[in-house]
């Protein structure tokens, strides 16, 4: 039993306790506190899972911003939960069934860190990644095509000067060793790391949309200063 596994088990047990307490507690104020604690513990767990970027996000959004937003919600509403009705059995059954299906779905997934997983075995389709790359340094597609033609001509000249097996053998060797054509083997990692610009661009779009929605929601009513929002 490795040390990290012990850590994972203890952390997950604490997270489970916190989650159940967050649901069960009656005072909404305590629920906000507990959800903040949940975020902190969850961020520790992400670090233990080696997902450092997710841990950053969880710390910034979960522990920082969402606690403040929930407190702001408590300012606008009240801080006491209304008395709950009895447990709705159909809803419980639907939740249990959905959770069961999700767990059933994980049975087909490869093991954590499996090097034979499909994402690690098959290189990414080159058309997804290479089509727009020459545009990055200001070259048009025609420039690239002309450059490639020149290179091909030079290669042909050199092959004419030095005919024989070594060049072909070298090409074969390169093809054999560089199985992934210069890309990161894992498809997800390939997109996230080697094509960081796309990833960041759409992340920025998501954050911009979320920010605009929040400003629209929290701005308060115009001409009614009594019902001013948070911003």
């Amino acid at each position: 039993m490795s040390g990290i596994l012990v850590l994972d088990i203890v952390l997950l047990a604490l997270i489970l306790i916190t989650a159940v307490a967050t649901v069960e507690v009656r005072s909404l104020y305590s629920a906000v506190m507990l959800s903040s604690i949940y975020s902190l513990l969850m961020a520790c767990f992400w670090v233990a899972m080696d997902a450092v970027d997710v841990a950053y996000t969880e710390a910034a959004v979960g522990a920082g911003i969402s606690t403040i937003l929930l407190i702001g919600t408590l300012v606008l509403t009240g801080s006491v939960e209304t008395v709950r009705k009895a447990v709705s059995w159909p809803a419980l059954a639907i939740c249990a069934a959905a959770g069961g299906f999700l767990i059933f779905g994980t049975l087909d997934m490869p093991r954590y860190g499996d090097r034979d997983a499909p994402a690690n075995r098959h290189p990414i389709y080159e058309g997804y990644t290479t089509q727009n790359v020459p545009k990055a340094d200001g070259k048009s597609a025609q420039d690239v095509k002309r450059f490639e033609e020149e290179q091909a001509a030079i290669a042909q000249q050199q092959a004419g000067k030095h005919p024989g097996e070594p060049a072909a053998e070298h090409a074969h060797g390169a093809e054999h060793t560089d199985f992934f054509h210069g890309h990161v083997p894992n498809q997800v990692t390939s997109i996230i790391v080697a094509y960081r610009g796309y990833d960041t661009m759409f992340e920025t779009a998501v954050i911009l949309t979320a920010g605009m929605s929040l400003i629209l929601l929290l701005r308060g009513r115009r001409g009614n200063p009594q019902r001013g929002g948070l911003l």
Binding site: Y56, A59, A60, G64, I71
Partner: peptide
Amino acid sequence: IALVYGILNFLSTIAI
């Protein structure tokens, strides 16, 4: 990450 946590923990405590 620990530094980020330290800053944010302070922030949410102040808000509460």
